[in-house]
């Protein structure tokens, strides 16, 4: 009885008490983590839409991008130059993936493409650490990290800037997909490879574009995440957090990745702070997965996932 009360009543009482300042901070913290989840999930969605490949290596790409950036900065390059060079490296990676992997696996079953990205994961992790070393590195890109007070709530200026940058990137991508001819071609390829080939859309070019974009998205995620928790091997594991986001938002939806990320980010923070005491804490670690599981029962295509169109 006591437990039921601590789950059903106490948290809401606490929320009411904390409203609005502390609760607002909790929510905003959730939003920031959520934006990061969204970014990683977005990388998945882009590649999944355009090549039908579930890219297991997205997390490794985040790690690889962050390692490269830090490594270049340690060589004494200024931040902006290191950033541009890393972007170049991610585009080069996209070319290499197309040339060495995808080109040879056209029209193979999905599972084979998926397996090849697992291989890519191991390669990227190993290659990145061989190149730049495996110790934990500090990433400081010069964005101020000072407390800012907005309407009584305390925020971190780095968090604000990061969230803003991510939001801009996400909006830009959504626009690109919906309104440009290349974006249209990308969506066409996502729908039907064969038909896209038949009307002359060059698949190779399209793949290089999406993998490059996914690489750049990974770079941004790597910067934000790396600056918060250091650049280290565990960065590649945030890919696992992106999975529930994808299930929630839908594998094929850019807005879904964004909203899904926000829901999970905010949800797990609130759950941790207010429901945590009742079950002894650590809700943050499993909240996303349980939510995703519940979603699979109710709406398997996700919130915004494309309906599987079946004409009768």
């Amino acid at each position: 009885m006591e437990f039921i009360e601590s789950v059903t009543i106490t948290p809401f009482v606490m929320i009411a008490q904390d409203f609005p300042v502390f609760f607002g901070e909790v929510v905003f913290n959730g939003v920031l983590t959520g934006v990061l989840y969204s970014l990683v999930a977005l990388g998945f969605v882009l590649i999944f839409k355009a090549s039908g490949v579930f890219n297991f290596a997205q997390g490794a790409m985040v790690l690889f991008a962050a390692l490269t950036l830090v490594g270049l900065m340690e060589l004494g390059l200024p931040v902006w130059l290191a950033f541009i060079l890393t972007m170049g490296a991610m585009v080069a990676l996209a070319y290499a993936v197309e040339l060495l992997v995808l080109r040879h696996l056209v029209n193979q079953p999905d599972i084979i493409l998926f397996m090849s990205t697992i291989g890519l994961t191991f390669f990227l992790e190993g290659f990145g650490e061989t190149l730049w070393g495996s110790n934990v590195k500090k990433l400081d890109i010069g964005i101020p990290d000072t407390p800012v007070e907005i309407t009584g709530m305390l925020f971190n200026s780095f968090d604000l800037i990061a969230a803003l940058a991510c939001a801009l990137l996400v909006t830009g991508l959504a626009f690109f997909f919906q309104y440009t001819p290349t974006g249209r071609a990308l969506r066409a390829v996502a729908d039907d490879h064969q038909a896209a080939l038949a009307v002359g859309i060059p698949l190779k070019k399209i793949w290089i574009i999406v993998w490059s974009v996914a690489g750049i998205v990974a770079l941004v995620a790597g910067i934000v995440w790396g600056a918060k928790s250091g650049v280290q091997f565990s960065l590649s594991l945030i890919a696992l957090k992106a999975l529930p986001v994808l299930i929630l938002g839908g594998f094929t939806s850019v807005p879904g990745a964004i909203v899904g990320g926000l829901i999970i980010g905010v949800g797990e923070k609130i759950a941790e702070v207010y429901w945590g005491p009742a079950v002894g804490g650590a809700i943050e670690n499993w909240f996303a997965y349980v939510l995703a599981l519940a979603f699979l029962f109710v709406r398997p295509q996700g919130l915004f996932g494309e309906r599987i169109i079946e004409r009768v």
Binding site: P181, A185, R187, D191, D192, A195, G200, I201, E306
Partner: peptide, 26 residues
């Protein structure tokens, strides 16, 4: 030289007009 494949193969999630515009991509 362009082929219209058997079984139609439209881009299902695109609108009809977007489908047509993909033909102009090249």
């Amino acid at each position: 030289v362009v082929q219209v494949m058997e079984g139609r193969h439209c881009f299902e999630h695109l609108t009809v007009e977007e489908n047509l515009l993909t033909g102009a991509y090249i």
